[in-house]
Structure formats: C-alpha cells, structure tokens
Simulated scan of single mutants.
Amino acid sequence: MEIEDWIDEVSGANFAWYIKRLSGNDTQLTGGHQAGPYVPKSLAVELLPQLSDLSLKNPRELVELRVLPDGFDTTANLIYYNNKFHDNPSSGRNETRLTALGGRENPLLDPENTGALTIFAFEYGAPVKCQVWICQNREQEALFEDEFGPVEPSETLVWSPNTKAIIADTKKHLGACSLSVEQIPSEWLVKFPSGLEIIKKSISLRPDLSKSVDERLLRRRDCEFEVFRSVEQAFFFPKVRSGFQNLDEFLAVAQSVLQSRKSRAGKSLEYHAKSILDEEGFVEGIDYEYNPKIEGNKKPDFLFPSVKRYNDGSFPAERLTILAAKTTCKDRWRQILNEADRVPTKHLLTLQEGVSINQYEEMSRSGVRLVVPKKLHKKYPSKIRSEIMTLAEFMTHIKN
C-alpha cells in the first residue's frame, strides 16, 4: 500500500492518531523491558473506558494491530500499569503501553527503526483496531510534519475526533516554564516571537548555571517547549475562537501555526548549544565560529577554531573540528559528510533516543562521532555507549 492511500484510509472521524518517534527503549534496542511503546493514558481511556477502573490491577484489552508498510499483523494488548494505586503507591507505575507485540518479527521491535517517525491510527470499536505506519525515509516523514509540524525525540502528538485538535502530550515536561497570558511579553501577543527570543526567555526562566552542560541543555529544551506552547496558545487561540469569514482566513492561520512550529524546531538545538558554549567560556570569533561559510557555500553549524585557521593549509587538520546539531539523525546524519573537507571526523550533536548498532557502525566508518547528552546514553546499546561523547566531553576535547 502507498502511504498516500493509507493516509486516506485512516483519516475518517472514527480514527484517533498518535504520533511519535520510536526510541531505543520502544524497539528494545537497549535490551530493556518496557514491554512496548508508551501510549498517552488519556487516549487509551478514550478508546477503552474500562481501562480506567482502578479496582483492577493492570487492566488490559486486546487491540488488533497491523504494522505497515511491512504488513505485519498480530493481536496486542493495551495495558494500564497502575501499580501506583495498588501495591506500590510511592514509586509504582501509572502509565499505559501497547504490549505483546508478537516478538522480534514485528517492525515496531526492529532496532533499525529506532528514530523513525511512527503514526498509530487507532480505530474506535470493539475490538479496537490499530494501524501503524513506520516512516521509511525523510520524504514520508515530511508528509506528516508538513501538516502537524516537527515531531522531535520524546515529543508526541495526539489527534482524536473528540478534541478535534493536535495535542502535544506533555508527560515528560516539568510545567514550571508554562506562562499565563499576563506573563507573556505584550509585544509577543502582537507579533509572534522568533525562536531565538523564546530560547532567551527559557534561559532566563531556567538558567541552571550550576548544573552540568548536558543537564542544562535538556532542561532548557523542556523549558523552551513549554514557553513556546504557552505563547502559541495565547497568540493563535483568540483568532481561532473568533472564527473565520472564509476558508482562506482559516488556511492562513493554520499555515502560520505550522510555520511557527517549524521555525522554532529548525534552529533550537543550535541556539541552545551556542548559548552553552558562550557560558562555558568559548569566545565566538576566536574559539569557534557559528554558521561560517567555507569552501564556497558550505556552512557547518559550528567550526572550531575559525575560518582563518581552516583556510590556512599549514594549520594541522587534526586541530580542526566541526559540530553539527540535529535533533534527529536517523536519515539526516549523511548531510554533514561534505560540510568541511579538511575535517576528517565530524561531530554530531543529537537528541535522538538511540541508533541501531548497524547504523552507528556506518556512521563511524564515515567519520561521524555522536555527541549525546549524558541522560540519553542509556537509550543507546550498551555496546557503543562508551564511544559516544557527552556534551561535556566534547567541550573538554575542544579545549584540549
């Protein structure tokens, strides 16, 4: 089945969509025992209200599962792990997951699909049916992200006919950076702020200068997400609430929402990395250059130490470094291979939650070294964790 035909098939009012990128834990790349992809509890209960019965421990219901484009069929469980309300109130689980996926033959458990954008289309009924599409390339991902905006690691989107809206599941966000309308700068309610302005706001709310650079990066990214969603709601909801005179007005607002999401995601990781470099004593123009132009029109994200040194043929190539920043790398890491001919090893800062061993070995053979915040290392296979740099280790490498 072609992806366009599948989208038409699951786009009716009887379907709810859940969109995420598969993590290393989802695909059991790390050898963990999470037992299947996380599903937002609100969606699970909407599909199967009986799961909300707290008198039952770990209630579950059958789901007819079909995984595409491979065409793998099985019967899975949608289970509510509710130990928190039974024998382990202090640290028990309180989450829903799709489990009993049929073993390693299921593409959802294929390590090579780690990082892939995946759409779960749940069909209401008895039994509940779920069709899953695992995107095979950037072109397929673009079909969805052009409609809903970028979907980054650990972020998920839910659409259901009851809400009639794309809702970001905030399970992993702390909430401390959410802003009321009164807390949002008044000028932002007139003109939507740039991604850099939102990042500066998130840094002011969560400076975290006493924390490690790895933790600082992740906490600020969470904060930025909350600030962005707060501003998006305050800026666009009044326009939606007041209604539209015609279709063109509606499409214009929808396009503005999508464009603001793309703009925020496109440069976010770069901006955060640059802020942390500056805070750690790296001087732009001396220790590094941001988005420099080299070798014609090539523009790496970060070049160490400078264009002048790079263009100096007598300067040792082993003392040159580039750092690319890409939130996901499954199908994007090859983009950096030709960014700087003189640099034999390209460093890639990513937030992707795992890569397969096969893909990692291909990256290594191509001269790419991953830089991943320390907290995310556990989402990578144990075999390669020692070879992945933390952000702190990368900065030490540059200083030395």
Rank of each mutant, 00 (worst) to 15 (best):
L217Q: 03
D214N: 14
P153S: 08
E152Q: 14
P207V: 05
L179S: 05
I166Q: 06
V132H: 06
T118L: 07
V151W: 01
T170W: 09
V181L: 15
P107Y: 02
E224D: 11
I198K: 00
D169H: 04
A126K: 12
L101D: 05
T118H: 06
R104N: 13
D208E: 13
Q131N: 15
A168K: 05
P161G: 05
Q136Y: 03
D214S: 09
A168C: 08
N94H: 13
S180P: 04
Y124E: 03
P150Q: 01
E105N: 14
R219P: 04
V132Y: 04
C177I: 11
S202Q: 07
N94S: 10
R138C: 10
D146R: 11
W159D: 00
S212N: 06
P150C: 08
V132N: 08
E105P: 03
D208V: 01
E141W: 07
A176N: 12
N88M: 14
P153R: 03
E147I: 14
T114P: 02
G102Q: 07
R219L: 15
E112T: 02
K172E: 14
E112L: 02
L196I: 12
I167D: 06
G175E: 10
W159M: 00
A176D: 15
V132T: 00
T96L: 09
F122E: 01
S212R: 01
A126Q: 11
W133Y: 15
I198Y: 02
I198M: 13
S202T: 10
C223W: 05
G102D: 00
N113C: 06
L143D: 04
K211P: 01
P207W: 09
A176G: 08
S178V: 12
R220V: 12
I166S: 01
R138Y: 12
S202G: 11
P161R: 03
N137M: 06
W159C: 04
T156K: 02
